[in-house]
Nucleic acid binder design. Structure first.
Ligand SMILES: [Mn+2]
Ligand SMILES: [Mn+2]
Ligand SMILES: [Zn+2]
Ligand SMILES: [Zn+2]
Lengths: 142, 142
DNA sequence: GTCTCAACTTAGACTTATTCTAAGTACATG
DNA sequence: CATGTACTTAGAATAAGTCTAAGTTGAGAC
């Protein structure tokens, strides 16, 4: 089941890919399925090892990168940048934020509505050392 | 002059390095000075070309990376992650945010107090496509 | 049902950002 | 002045990601 896609219309990775116009090849389905059922924000390498060890189908590094870029371009997943030198992937495409535990490296989702009173008010299971707001958009010239 | 360090006690890059316990070698001073007088959030490569073309002193790529990491560890500069695969550097170490113009790639600082009413209220010279809050801290176990 | 062709996958070469290594330089201190 | 440590350097090494060129697949044409 899709842990991150809460619509009850789209239940399988295959249907999700079809709905976004991505041909559901076995490799793509297996990668999308893995991303949908994890909340760990894995890197490409982590996707490769998780998926290839659990699957009978052969899977190359190039296909993992191709698929991640295809899924990103199709809006099925998002990139998450939390540390230099590695891109992480997230099947939760809703507008939300991330909390990085600097001790464990664990990355957990923070719902957008938690962030209204920013910094504080995150709940006492989070000790916030700092946070960064990163805007994407366009600058109007002067 | 230091565009980003608004204290009037510390005026030169050399004094800033000394105050943070970093030995002010010519290479370090020249790199710190460049970062202090730009607001462009340059990459290591951009630092290297800007600094080596304007300076008589020889400067190697390894020294640029060594110096950037030293300055970061000493709290003189901060890393800024805005796109996959490249780290940018910022001599503005105050708590602030960034706005990425997706058309031009320009990265401008957003003062922290601008971000209270997040998303909207950024001023009409900014067309916000989206933003990300990135928290750093520690997760208390359950 | 077979043919055909574009889309997809693959292994490995390549590129690029960053780090490491090993040797040289600077310079503070004895 | 000699020495030792910190610093710098060129280039080798690493690691994430992309590209290339050759095979594979499978949906539609017939
Ligand atoms: Mn990418
Ligand atoms: Mn770094
Ligand atoms: Zn997430
Ligand atoms: Zn900044």
């Amino acid at each position: 089941m899709t842990a991150h896609n809460t619509s009850n219309k789209i239940v399988t990775a295959e249907q999700l890919l079809l709905s976004r116009g991505v041909k559901p090849t076995p490799q793509r389905v297996v990668i999308a399925d893995y991303l949908l059922q994890t909340d760990s924000h894995p890197t490409a390498d982590e996707v490769l090892s998780a998926v290839s060890e659990a699957l009978p189908v052969a899977l190359s590094r190039a296909t993992v990168y191709n698929t991640l870029n295809t899924l990103k371009d199709a809006g099925v997943i998002k990139e998450v940048l939390t540390e230099p030198g590695r891109v992480r992937y997230d099947a939760n495409i809703s507008h939300h934020h991330h909390f990085v535990d600097v001790k464990t490296g664990k990355i957990v989702d923070i719902p957008a509505d938690k962030v209204e009173a920013i910094g504080e008010l995150l709940g006492d299971q989070y000790k916030v050392h700092g946070f960064q707001v990163l805007f994407y958009g366009e600058l109007e010239q002067h």
